[in-house]
Simulated scan of single mutants.
Amino acid sequence: MNQLVFLSLLPVVLLIAIGFIAGRAGWIRTVAVKDLSNLIFLMLTPALLFRTMSHVRIEQLDFKPVAAYFLAVMLLFAGTLAVQGFNRRGAVLALAATFSNTVMIGIAMVSLMYGPQGLVILLTLVSVHALVLLTSATLVLELAVVQEQKQQGTLDGPGVAPRHAVTTVLTALKNAVLHPVPLPIIVGLLFAQTGWVMPAVIDKPLELLANAFGPLALVLVGVTLAFTPVGRHWRQALALAAVKNLLHPLLVLGLCYLLGVGGLPMVVMVVASALPIGANVFLFSQRYKVAEELVTASVVVSTALAMVTLTLVLLLVGKIA
């Protein structure tokens, strides 16, 4: 099992290391990172997700593992809010403790380790991961903003527009669906239900784009690490990374056991929960202007720490599965 874990993680580690070296050496400059990110998220990601799900019938999908995953997320999110307090900082840190990098690292890693069957299980989670978590986080953050404004006496004051929870939820829901991750999954699933066969002239370019996703996504992770300073927040970042990388998968593992989820679905859910903090958390911290440096440092530490923690988690589930 040790050799299997090593051989599975080695390509991931090497690709990230290549990206890190390229960034440090100046082969890829900071100005190019945004363009690389757009290439991956707006072209390669939709191609991979649509092509994978275009062969999957809805009756083949199993949402029981996803239920175990999100139950763990709810417990951890609520627990973080209880410790940090119901405010913008608490909400952003709760999102950081529960939001995995399921796309850039997760899809590439699970595809390499478990093949198409494991990828379908992961994409079942990915299809609702951003939708549920980002919508929930947006609602909590907006409510926290309202509460802070009430405490400061600025709610509905001059120049301050009232915030309506229903509008907030609907807007967040629309933004989460019209996104380069959930949308191609939904379209791919709808196409699969028709029973049609993708013409080769369309399928082949999609296949080439999809095959390029994994290596480029992991290289971009390394490039991003090369340009992101950890700074004075490393202790707090390490604590938050430990919660995300270790406590989160342990909760998912326990709930999978209680709900009778085993085999490959359990393994994929635990691996998904052990993935480092996703970049969307940083975008939320920027948008709401809270804990920006801490979240940036946490993403870096969580990603670097994942090299060790993912190995430990894989060894653990390998003995149980």
Rank of each mutant, 00 (worst) to 15 (best):
residue 5 V to D: 09
residue 5 V to Y: 04
residue 5 V to C: 06
residue 5 V to L: 04
residue 5 V to M: 09
residue 5 V to S: 08
residue 5 V to A: 07
residue 6 F to S: 05
residue 6 F to P: 02
residue 6 F to W: 06
residue 7 L to P: 02
residue 7 L to F: 08
residue 8 S to F: 07
residue 10 L to E: 02
residue 11 P to Q: 10
residue 12 V to N: 13
residue 12 V to M: 12
residue 14 L to E: 03
residue 14 L to S: 03
residue 14 L to N: 04
residue 14 L to W: 00
residue 15 L to T: 15
residue 15 L to G: 11
residue 17 A to R: 02
residue 17 A to Y: 00
residue 18 I to M: 11
residue 18 I to F: 07
residue 19 G to H: 00
residue 19 G to K: 04
residue 20 F to M: 06
residue 20 F to G: 01
residue 20 F to E: 11
residue 21 I to E: 06
residue 21 I to G: 04
residue 23 G to T: 07
residue 24 R to Q: 14
residue 24 R to G: 10
residue 25 A to Y: 00
residue 26 G to Y: 05
residue 28 I to Q: 05
residue 29 R to S: 05
residue 30 T to G: 12
residue 30 T to A: 15
residue 31 V to C: 05
residue 31 V to A: 12
residue 31 V to R: 07
residue 31 V to T: 13
residue 33 V to W: 01
residue 33 V to A: 03
residue 35 D to F: 11
residue 35 D to Y: 11
residue 36 L to S: 00
residue 37 S to Q: 12
residue 37 S to Y: 04
residue 37 S to E: 00
residue 37 S to R: 05
residue 38 N to T: 08
residue 39 L to W: 06
residue 39 L to Q: 08
residue 39 L to M: 14
residue 39 L to T: 13
residue 40 I to H: 10
residue 40 I to N: 14
residue 40 I to D: 10
residue 41 F to T: 13
residue 41 F to E: 08
residue 41 F to S: 09
residue 42 L to R: 15
residue 42 L to M: 15
residue 43 M to W: 04
residue 43 M to C: 14
residue 44 L to N: 12
residue 45 T to W: 01
residue 46 P to H: 05
residue 47 A to H: 09
residue 48 L to S: 00
residue 48 L to N: 04
residue 49 L to M: 07
residue 49 L to E: 05
residue 49 L to S: 09
residue 49 L to T: 09
residue 49 L to I: 14
residue 50 F to V: 11
residue 50 F to E: 01
residue 51 R to P: 07
residue 51 R to W: 01
residue 52 T to P: 06
residue 52 T to W: 05
residue 53 M to I: 13
residue 53 M to V: 12
residue 53 M to S: 15
residue 54 S to K: 07
residue 54 S to L: 08
residue 55 H to F: 08
residue 55 H to V: 13
residue 56 V to N: 08
residue 56 V to S: 12
residue 56 V to L: 07
residue 57 R to G: 13
residue 58 I to K: 02
residue 58 I to V: 15
residue 58 I to Q: 10
residue 59 E to A: 14
residue 59 E to Y: 03
residue 59 E to L: 06
residue 60 Q to I: 09
residue 61 L to D: 14
residue 61 L to M: 14
residue 61 L to Q: 14
residue 62 D to C: 15
residue 62 D to L: 15
residue 63 F to A: 09
residue 64 K to C: 14
residue 65 P to C: 06
residue 65 P to Q: 10
residue 66 V to H: 01
residue 66 V to S: 02
residue 67 A to L: 11
residue 67 A to V: 12
residue 68 A to L: 00
residue 68 A to D: 02
residue 69 Y to F: 14
residue 70 F to S: 05
residue 70 F to I: 05
residue 71 L to Y: 04
residue 72 A to P: 05
residue 72 A to D: 03
residue 72 A to G: 04
residue 73 V to K: 07
residue 73 V to L: 12
residue 74 M to W: 03
residue 75 L to I: 03
residue 75 L to V: 08
residue 75 L to K: 03
residue 75 L to Q: 03
residue 76 L to T: 05
residue 76 L to I: 07
residue 76 L to A: 04
residue 77 F to K: 02
residue 77 F to D: 00
residue 77 F to S: 00
residue 77 F to I: 04
residue 79 G to T: 10
residue 80 T to N: 06
residue 82 A to F: 05
residue 82 A to R: 12
